[in-house]
Design a protein around this nucleic acid. Sequence first.
DNA 1: CTAGGGTTAG
Length: 583
Amino acid sequence: MCKCNTQVSYLHALLQLCARNRAAIQGQACHAQTFHFGLHQDTITSNILINMYCKSGVMSSARKVFDQMPERSLVSWNSLIGSHAQNGEAQQALTLFRSMQREGSLFSEFTISSLLCACAAKCAVFECKQLHGFAIKAAVDSNMFVGTALVDVYAKCALVKDACLVFDNMKERNVVTWSCMAVGYVQNELFEDALLLFRRAQIMEVEHDQFMFSSIVSACAGLAALIEGKQVHAIISKTGFGSNNVFVTSSLIDMYAKCGSVEEAYAVFTGIKEKNIVSWNTMISGFAKHARALEAMILFEKMQQIGLHPNQFTYSSVLSACSHMGLVDEAKSYFDLMRKEHNVPPNEIHYSCMVDVLGRVGKVSEAYHLIKRMPFDATASMWGSLLACCRFHGNLELAKVAAKHLFELEPDNAGNHILLSNIYAANKKWEEVARTRTLLKESMVKKERGKSWIAIKDKVHAFMVGEINHPRIAEIYSKLDNLVEEMKILGYRVETEHDFHDVEDSRKQQLLKHHSEKLALTFGLLCLPSNAPIRIMKNLRICGDCHSFMKLASRVTQREIIVRDINRFHHFRNGFCSCADFW
DNA sequence: CTAGGGTTAG
């Protein structure tokens, strides 16, 4: 029996090489050699074998080595648990942990961080809290890996406060810890907090990496904060992460698109050397939001020319592009193609786009039949879009059906009651109008108030309907009056049918005049240079009066006005809107 | 010999 040290370390090195390269076949040959050298019962050799089999994905062999070892060490357990965690097999990892405890083996920071990782993937809150307890008892909670895993798992389970608490109490943090916290904020839609964290990291001169950048860019996208987004983009370019990471570049495309600058989104897109499916999907979705269906469709073709297969995201983006523009035939052919050509089964989002586009072009019954025969329960958004279409195309019978379903799903949504009331009014059913208006008044109390905001330099100015608190509000109202007078000469008439308060017409005119987007626009006119586009963000759908107003305002002032409402972007230029009045 | 994070949909 030869146990020459150089040969042993040679075999170990070979096995480690196999592990790194996930070379199971060669690893197996080395495994045979361990018998030849009488090393098969050696703990370190067995651990290296377990690691090699885990890394190359042969879990059964790893388990066999583990089961046959005469003396298991902590590393043996950790390797196996860690591997199950990485494979997303939380249950197996936890079961092993329990056997480990039953056998009286102590665990380490390696064990806990692996298990936490497994729980993060499954959002297993209870297990995660328990593991946190174990970590404290075993005094491994101050370990950086354990702390980072805790931040990650708490954030993924939507326990942001717990994540923060762990983060703030950590003695030592690295770039992963910081990016986990940032990602945690973004995933819980706490975009402001993510940006504040990023600034804190900058002040503390923490190094950034691609993970941090992609999450911060997503935060800017979520806030529709173009100025901050551009600043972060500049930092990214300086650090050289600019065009070589698909996560960062996809986030950048999405950020520019959601901030209203589809041109800059496209510039990032064309600059990517190796685009993946997400790069394409994000760009297509960007064009869709901006009512540029043709470009969306062209990209859909181009991505296939370079050999990428459209997936569910791709299809939801092209379908929504079609629905925004009322391209019903194109939508139908995509809907057909997705299953036949690319084996993508349509999901609720795809059906929702189809219902929307069919309804928009007046094929209301067809939309209803699609809802009836789809394999899911219809969502509120589907009934809502059907109801809206019934109003537009005048179908009282289907409107009643849609409304009935809708009120079951969303009893407190004021917009739904408004729609139905209008339909009854159009059909001169005054009793029903009165009945719906009572329901409407109750729901109006809970209705979200209209709010718009505009960024001037580095400050965001927000306006509510009939705002009185802005420092320059008097100036704004006076400028708005002048603008309205100028527009009236061109034929602007306040469309009071878009206001649903139970008040007389003159008061309605007043309320409409002071819709938040009009105030934001006026403030933009006061503050921004005369050639700069005016970008306004809004929390609700833009009303018909404001839409006409913006069209005329773009003509009178010769400005480009970009309004993002809850669904999409409107680009107003010289009296026209990119949505072709279809929204 | 063992441990952590990110992008796209109505």
